[in-house]
C-alpha cells in the first residue's frame, strides 16, 4: 500500500514537472520570438494568458463570458455527435452483419470518408445557412466515420465462439445481436464515441472560425484575434485544452466503471 502511494506521488511529481517544462518553454518561445521581431511582442506570456483566462470566466465581452462560449460549442458538439451516433451505430452493425447491404453501401462510405469535415463547411453554409444546423452537420460528418468504423470493425471481429454458444443456448438472431454482439462491442462503441467527440470538437472550432455562428469558442478566438486581444485569444485556446482534458477524463471514468470486465481494475 505504501509502495502504491509512493508511486502515485511520483506520478504526480512527473505531471508537475511536465507542466513546469511546458510553461518554461512557453516563456522561452515568447522571448526568442521577441528577439526575431525586434522587440514587438504579439504572443502573450503564460501569466498574461492565464490572467485573461480567469478574468474572462466571469467578465463578459459583448454579453458573453468564456464559459457561455464553451457551452454553446459543447451543445453543438453534442447535437452533431448524437445524430452521428444514432445513424452510425445501427448502420455499422447492420452492414457488418449483412454482406449484400455492405456491398451496396461500403463503396459510398469509402468515397465520402476522405473528404475532410472542414471541406464540408462551404457546402453546409450554402445548404443550411449560418445556423446551428450547419454546425451540427459539420460535426456529424466528422463524428460519423470514426463511430461507424469502430462499430463495424467491432462486429466483424466479435468472437464467433460467443455467438455459437448463445445459439446453442437457444438464442435467435436478434437475441444474439442484443445479448452477445452489442455487449461485446461496447469497448468499440466507447472508443468510437471518444474519437467522434474529439473530431467533433475540432470541427466545431473550425466551423465557428469560418463564421458559422455568433458565439462559441472558435468564434471567440477568431474575434479576439481580429480585434488584437491576443492574450484573450490564447485564453480561449487554453479553454479548449481544458475542455478536451475534461472530456478525456469523463471517458476514462466511463471506461473504468462500465468496462471493468474488459480492463484490469488496476489500470
Amino acid at each position: 500500500m505504501k509502495l502504491k502511494n509512493r508511486s502515485k506521488f511520483k506520478i504526480i511529481l512527473y505531471y508537475i514537472a511536465g507542466f513546469v517544462i511546458f510553461i518554461a518553454s512557453w516563456y522561452f518561445f515568447v522571448i526568442i520570438l521577441q528577439l526575431f521581431t525586434q522587440g514587438t511582442r504579439v504572443v502573450p506570456y503564460p501569466h498574461e494568458a492565464f490572467k485573461s483566462f480567469f478574468l474572462l470566466l466571469y467578465t463578459p465581452i459583448d454579453g458573453q463570458t468564456l464559459l457561455t462560449h464553451v457551452i454553446a460549442s459543447l451543445i453543438r458538439v453534442f447535437i452533431g455527435v448524437f445524430y452521428a451516433w444514432i445513424i452510425a451505430v445501427p448502420l455499422g452493425i447492420v452492414l457488418a452483419l449483412t454482406p449484400f447491404l455492405d456491398h451496396i453501401f461500403q463503396p459510398i462510405i469509402e468515397m465520402i470518408r476522405p473528404i475532410p469535415p472542414i471541406a464540408w463547411i462551404p457546402f453546409a453554409i450554402i445548404t443550411f445557412g449560418l445556423t446551428t444546423t450547419s454546425n451540427a452537420f459539420i460535426i456529424f460528418i466528422g463524428a460519423f466515420f470514426p463511430l461507424f468504423q469502430n462499430v463495424y470493425d467491432g462486429v466483424r471481429q466479435s468472437n464467433v465462439v460467443y455467438q455459437d454458444v448463445a445459439r446453442s443456448l437457444g438464442a435467435n438472431k436478434i437475441q444474439v445481436i442484443w445479448n452477445v454482439i452489442l455487449p461485446s462491442i461496447t469497448p468499440n462503441m466507447l472508443t468510437g464515441t471518444k474519437v467522434a467527440v474529439g473530431v467533433g470538437w475540432m470541427c466545431v472550432i473550425a466551423a465557428e472560425m469560418m463564421g458559422i455562428s455568433g458565439a462559441g469558442i472558435g468564434y471567440f478566438i477568431n474575434y479576439m484575434k481580429n480585434i488584437g486581444y491576443y492574450s484573450h485569444m490564447v485564453a480561449g485556446m487554453l479553454m479548449i485544452a481544458i475542455v478536451g482534458l475534461l472530456i478525456n477524463f469523463i471517458f476514462f471514468l466511463i471506461e473504468k466503471y462500465s468496462l471493468a470486465w474488459k480492463y484490469n481494475s488496476e489500470n
Binding site: N159, V161, Y162, D164, V165, S168, V180, P183, S184, T186, W261, K262
Partner: peptide, 13 residues
C-alpha cells in the same frame, strides 16, 4: 449443450 475448445464464458457477465 455445447462446450467449445476456447474459454467461452461471456466476459461481460
Amino acid at each position: 449443450g455445447y462446450i467449445p475448445q476456447e474459454f467461452s464464458l461471456f466476459p461481460w457477465l
